[in-house]
Amino acid sequence: SEEKKKAKERLERLGASSELARELLDRANGNAEKAERLLRKLL
């Protein structure tokens, strides 16, 4: 979806690899905010 694509791009801008961004979104069930929080914990 367009929303998921935007979320993935945002995670990548924050420093996630394409693969990591995809994994985070999967774990967050597509929830962009939750995926971002997970990423911030990792960085």
Rank of each mutant, 00 (worst) to 15 (best):
S1Y: 13
S1L: 14
S1V: 10
S1W: 13
S1T: 12
S1M: 12
S1I: 12
E2S: 12
E2T: 10
E2Y: 11
E2F: 11
E2D: 13
E3I: 10
E3N: 12
E3H: 10
E3P: 08
E3G: 10
E3V: 10
E3F: 09
E3K: 09
E3T: 09
E3A: 13
E3D: 12
E3S: 12
K4V: 14
K4R: 15
K4C: 10
K4H: 15
K5C: 15
K5L: 11
K5M: 11
K5S: 11
K6W: 11
K6S: 12
K6E: 11
K6C: 03
K6G: 12
K6T: 10
K6A: 13
A7L: 10
A7T: 06
A7N: 08
A7S: 07
A7R: 05
K8D: 03
K8P: 03
K8E: 14
K8L: 15
K8S: 13
K8H: 14
K8R: 15
E9T: 07
E9A: 10
E9W: 05
E9L: 08
E9P: 03
R10S: 05
R10Y: 10
R10V: 06
R10N: 07
R10Q: 06
L11H: 01
L11E: 01
L11Y: 02
L11G: 01
L11W: 04
L11M: 04
L11I: 03
E12P: 00
E12S: 03
E12K: 07
E12Y: 05
E12V: 11
E12H: 06
R13C: 13
R13S: 12
R13V: 07
R13Q: 12
R13T: 08
R13L: 13
R13D: 07
R13E: 10
L14K: 03
L14I: 06
L14V: 03
L14E: 02
L14C: 05
G15M: 03
G15D: 01
G15L: 05
G15R: 02
G15Y: 03
G15F: 04
A16Q: 02
A16N: 02
A16E: 01
A16Y: 02
A16M: 03
A16K: 01
A16T: 02
A16F: 03
A16I: 06
S17K: 03
S17Q: 03
S18M: 07
S18T: 10
S18G: 08
S18Q: 10
S18H: 08
S18I: 06
S18C: 06
S18Y: 05
E19K: 09
E19F: 05
E19A: 13
E19H: 09
E19G: 07
E19N: 07
E19R: 09
E19S: 08
L20Q: 07
L20Y: 03
L20E: 04
L20I: 05
L20D: 01
L20M: 09
A21V: 06
A21Q: 01
A21W: 06
A21R: 02
A21N: 01
A21K: 02
R22I: 15
R22D: 15
R22N: 14
R22E: 15
E23F: 13
E23M: 13
E23I: 14
E23S: 09
E23Y: 14
E23C: 15
E23R: 12
L24H: 01
L24G: 00
L24S: 01
L24A: 02
L24F: 03
L24R: 00
L24E: 01
L25T: 02
L25Y: 04
L25H: 01
L25E: 01
L25W: 05
D26G: 07
D26M: 13
D26Y: 11
R27N: 06
R27T: 07
R27S: 06
A28K: 01
A28C: 12
A28R: 02
A28N: 05
A28L: 06
A28P: 00
A28T: 14
A28E: 04
A28I: 02
A28D: 00
N29K: 09
N29E: 09
N29T: 03
G30I: 02
G30K: 02
G30C: 03
G30W: 14
G30H: 06
G30N: 08
N31T: 02
N31Y: 03
N31M: 04
N31F: 04
A32W: 13
A32M: 13
A32T: 07
A32E: 08
A32S: 08
A32Y: 15
A32G: 08
E33A: 14
E33M: 10
E33F: 09
E33S: 09
E33L: 12
E33D: 12
E33T: 09
E33Y: 10
E33I: 10
E33W: 11
E33K: 13
K34L: 15
K34T: 13
K34R: 12
K34A: 15
K34H: 14
K34M: 15
A35F: 03
A35D: 00
A35S: 02
A35C: 00
A35H: 00
A35E: 01
A35N: 00
A35R: 00
E36I: 14
E36T: 05
E36H: 04
E36K: 04
E36G: 03
E36D: 02
E36L: 12
E36Q: 05
R37Q: 14
R37P: 00
R37I: 13
R37S: 11
R37N: 09
R37H: 10
R37Y: 12
L38A: 09
L38M: 14
L38R: 04
L38N: 04
L38D: 06
L38K: 03
L38T: 05
L38Y: 07
L39Q: 00
L39R: 01
L39I: 01
L39F: 08
R40N: 09
R40L: 15
R40C: 09
R40Y: 14
R40Q: 11
R40M: 15
R40P: 00
R40E: 10
K41I: 13
K41M: 13
K41F: 13
K41Q: 14
K41H: 12
K41S: 09
L42A: 06
L42W: 11
L42C: 07
L42R: 04
L42E: 04
L43Y: 09
L43I: 09
L43T: 05
L43E: 04
L43H: 05
L43C: 08
L43D: 03
